[in-house]
Simulated scan of single mutants.
Amino acid sequence: MYLIGLTGGIAAGKSTVATRLVEHGAVHIDADKLARAVVEPGTPGLAAVRETFGDGVIRADGSLDRAALGAQVFSNPAELDKLNGIVHPAVRALSDSLIRDAAADQDVVVVYDVPLLVEASTAQPHAHPFDLVVVVHASEETRLRRMVELRGMSETDAANRINSQATDAERLAVADVVIDTDGSLDDTLAQVDALWTRVRAAVVSAG
């Protein structure tokens, strides 16, 4: 198994990169989906969120009110740390299990898509043993524009989301490969195709 850690700031273009890698044959594990799974109704994660943040973040049907929780934590670093302390360990345990399952195929390339890879590694220094860390990068101006124009967010909300994450410098410091998405889609995809060629060569060489 060849394990890629894929990360980048919000609206940097991770989904585009991940989709292209899957088209080439990679197995995709999405930490965002795992983060939602660990706070589904009936999970210990949701119970911990309710105990920590109160009934105001729980909908009438018992599910998590993500908008209410986001409004509470994304402008308050101390509250965000509390949330990460609940979610990150649960996601780590679930991702460990999925990666172990995938490793049964020694030639498989697994892309673990982790938006908060830097933040999670700080909270839990013993990170997954990635063969390669790929950082998807776009300027803050580009990401703000995408969030406002494509996601309908206010500039204030978009800025709060960006500021709640690691800085560009912190992400780039852990990168083995940087995919720059400030340019055209074709340019981004060409960078991903070159990455795949490199990865497959490494897998063949290791085999």
Rank of each mutant, 00 (worst) to 15 (best):
A158G: 10
V57H: 06
A206I: 12
S121F: 02
L116G: 03
V111I: 10
V192P: 00
Q72I: 03
R66K: 04
A194W: 01
V17P: 00
M153T: 11
N160S: 12
Q124N: 13
I4Q: 07
V203Y: 00
S97N: 12
R198G: 07
L21I: 08
V49L: 15
V73F: 12
V174Q: 04
V134D: 01
D186W: 14
F130C: 04
I4F: 08
I179D: 02
D61P: 00
I29N: 02
V49D: 15
R143C: 13
A78K: 13
R50H: 14
L144H: 08
V57M: 09
A120V: 05
G85M: 05
A90C: 02
L21D: 04
G42T: 08
H88K: 01
Q124F: 15
T122M: 10
D65W: 08
V39Q: 10
R198V: 09
V148G: 05
G62M: 09
N160I: 02
A11I: 12
S97W: 10
P129S: 11
V178F: 01
G85L: 05
S139Y: 01
A12R: 00
A90N: 02
D30Y: 08
V133P: 01
V204H: 07
S75E: 13
A194T: 11
F130W: 10
L189D: 05
A173F: 01
V136E: 04
R143L: 07
K14Q: 03
V136T: 11
L144R: 12
E170K: 02
E141L: 15
H88L: 05
A18S: 12
D96E: 09
E40D: 10
K82W: 06
A138Q: 13
H126I: 00
R20C: 09
D182E: 10
L98I: 09
I58C: 03
K82N: 02
R66I: 03
G152V: 13
A159F: 03
G56I: 08
